[in-house]
């Protein structure tokens, strides 16, 4: 059951009725003895595009991996579409409409492009058709029979994105999708994200490329030492520039 709340938008001045798609409370995550997340609190509303920004090791990827259930030990609460998923298995979480695009892209080398594209099972109605995806990413159409690992970095990234859009997932967790890609591919991915936002997808985007993320996102979660240090609304980008300088500069 979805939770409707009246809540003052962070950084904004108006009050609106919005639907909580993802609500994380006091999330701790552990790698063996290592304590990676230290009590994260975060709410993402339906149709929002938010970024997790921060330096390497700040806990951004671990947050995504915790949401999809890929971290063995985690405590706290993760509510997805009104349901608690902290103890759910990854395949159960996926079937609640979550699409995950990992940092390393996760293209299966033993499968060709089309097999990679068709691999994830449908998790909900309303996924994009293969034709739509080939229209969105024409390079993939040309290389549909190529082995996954013969693709360029940009093509692999497009495939990793296309793969989850076919499934009907409407909560997308995207990890460093622009890393190591040519500017023309980055521009293409920005176009795709704008299109997804217009279609009502909820997107959590881990990014280091602030110039890429800034014009796309509704809010930015600045992470530091496994916790959310600041939340910055898109309207506050100019006034809170010092925060980005403090947490993102090397």
């Amino acid at each position: 059951m979805n939770t409707k709340v009246n809540e003052k938008e962070l950084g904004g001045s108006h009050v609106s009725e919005r639907i909580r798609e993802l609500r994380i409370q006091d999330l701790h995550a552990f790698y063996g003895e290592g304590h990676a997340l230290h009590g994260i609190d975060m709410t993402v509303y339906r149709g929002e595009l938010v970024t997790l920004l921060g330096r390497n090791g700040s806990g951004r990827t671990t947050t995504l991996r915790s949401i999809v259930g890929l971290i063995g030990r985690r405590t706290g609460s993760i509510m997805l579409k009104g349901e608690e998923i902290i103890n759910a298995s990854p395949h159960v979480i996926a079937h609640m409409g979550v699409g995950y695009c990992p940092e390393e892209r996760g293209i299966f080398s033993s499968l060709n492009v089309e097999e990679n594209l068709m691999l994830p099972p449908k998790v909900a109605d309303g996924g994009m058709s293969v034709e739509e995806l080939y229209e969105m990413f024409p390079n993939l159409a040309e290389r549909r029979k190529s082995p996954g690992m013969r693709l360029s970095g940009g093509e692999q990234q497009m495939l990793a994105m296309a793969r989850i859009l076919r499934t009907g997932a409407n909560v997308l967790l995207l990890d460093e999708i622009t890393e190591g890609l040519a500017p023309v591919i980055v521009d293409k991915l920005a176009e795709v994200l704008i299109e997804l936002k217009n279609r009502g997808y909820t997107v959590v985007l881990v990014e280091q490329n602030f110039r890429f993320a800034a014009p796309l996102a509704d809010r930015h979660f600045i992470m530091d030492h496994g916790d959310v240090a600041e939340i910055i609304h898109k309207d506050e980008l100019d006034t809170k520039k010092h925060v980005f300088d403090e947490y993102l500069s090397v």
């Binding site: 890929l70 990854p90 996926a94 990992p102 299966f108 080398s109 691999l119 994830p120």
Partner: peptide, 16 residues
């Protein structure tokens, strides 16, 4: 075949 390469990611895609 995919499970042989990366079973965790395959499960995160919704495969049991």
């Amino acid at each position: 075949r995919a499970g042989t390469e990366n079973p965790k990611l395959l499960q995160a895609f919704g495969v049991n």
